[in-house]
Design a binder for these strands. Structure first.
Lengths: 245, 245
DNA sequence: TACTACATCTCGCAT
DNA sequence: ATGCGAGGTGTAGTA
């Protein structure tokens, strides 16, 4: 693709807040929270309407370089080829464009948000409405969602005069998760001036080391799966899919 | 763009392990580690040569949906429009394609790795070669000895018979960082059977609460910046850039 | 494989 | 702006 053609289309699309994608051979310098250099190779560059800049190599899931939304982006001629210079906050990206293979631009119309279920919040909600998931005598004191005594997921008491702090994790609980629970329990003991505070880790599973530390602190692990209400629908889809194959 | 044309180009590019990008109007269902639904809108869909699938809305830095490398991807006709079905591990993605606006495919040649400096490893290396950054009497032990103690960033001793555990963070240290350090110190006390173990948090800054907890445990904070050796080059570039503006 | 910790983490939420 | 914790976190390193 010709330099002049690219430059014109690029400027116009950028000004019109279109989305731009192009294939190119380039070399990249990054400076900001860290410093990086990526030698010449073919990449995909995506510029969104909010001036997000994302650069992908032909393999791997994550972008190799990027700038957050709101970047200042411009292209200038530099020693026979083009130089894309961009800045977002403290981060700077310089992309030497040796060759632009192909470019695609379009104004995209969206504005939808994704509905997502099965996160940690859904898990703690489930425990509040089904306290027996923790124990027969567990009584949650719903109320506090984010702050009050901290960021405790579910807080309550049992029938033996103990306060109970529940920490939910949607994945295998690790050492870090247990220290988090420990921190909350100690905060609660401090605030309430009592030693009768129990810790419960609610997660689908827990690593061996984490379980060891949990028990060392006299805490309990309870197996709880994150709720996925759309699961049946999707299961059906998968079954149908397998049938059609 | 015509369905039949898209289908043919898509299949061919996918089989040739080219990179594909297209603009489309679509509706997305995700099922796997969670469940999600995204109503109809315009998006950018990127399929890489390793069968990574990434879907972007026209704004925001992160993809709204994605599948990890190695996904099984196919497109089939479904009630007048196209249906892209993909699966990677336990994750399923169904994309109803109401209209494909434009498509770009190309075999990209890369294979370069990024050189990056200023990460936590660089920070701990710097401390090992310049122990005075921690204190005048700090003496780090050799790297070989270090490894058998686990995940400790820098380990050593001072002139007063104390073992010293250093935890590096490239950003503002938080409560979680301090509990991590605490965990390492306690592990070390246990392993060595001594109470004389000091904890040091090395980071550019530390939150007020984290500093409180740090001091409560008798640990110290030392201000250390992650090393960025290319910084001067980039600073010069920025200065030059400003001059040319 | 399981587990651990880093990441230019990003993002939202609350102070 | 800062602080704190979740994330469909992803990714690398190690046992």
């Amino acid at each position: 693709m010709e330099q002049a053609d690219f430059l014109e289309l690029f400027e116009r699309a950028l000004a019109a807040h279109q989305v731009l994608v192009f294939f190119c051979s380039c070399e990249i310098r990054y400076s900001g929270r860290a410093e990086a250099f990526l030698p010449q190779g073919d990449r995909v560059i995506l510029i969104k309407e909010d001036q997000t800049l994302i650069i992908h190599q032909p393999i791997n899931g994550n972008p190799i370089n990027y700038l957050k939304p709101g970047a200042e982006i411009r292209v200038e001629k530099h020693q026979g080829h083009l130089l894309l210079k961009a800045k977002s906050g403290k981060d700077y990206l310089d992309v030497e464009l040796f060759k632009v293979h192909d470019l695609m631009t379009k104004k995209l119309e969206d504005g939808q948000k994704q509905f997502l279920q099965g996160n940690e919040k859904d898990m703690s909600d489930m425990i509040k409405t089904q306290p027996s998931l923790i124990s027969d005598d567990f009584r949650p004191v719903s109320r506090e969602e984010h702050t009050k005594f901290g960021f405790i997921d579910v807080f309550g008491h049992d029938g033996k005069g103990n306060l109970v702090v529940v920490e939910c994790k949607r994945y295998t609980a690790s050492l870090a998760c247990v220290t988090q629970l420990r921190r909350y329990v100690e905060k609660m003991k401090d605030l309430k001036g009592t030693g009768k505070v129990k810790g419960v880790m609610a997660s689908p599973s827990i690593s061996t080391n984490a379980l060891g530390m949990l028990q060392q602190w006299g805490f309990r692990h309870v197996v709880v799966e994150p709720p996925k209400r759309l699961e049946r629908y999707n299961k059906d889809q998968r079954a149908l899919d397998a049938f059609l194959r």
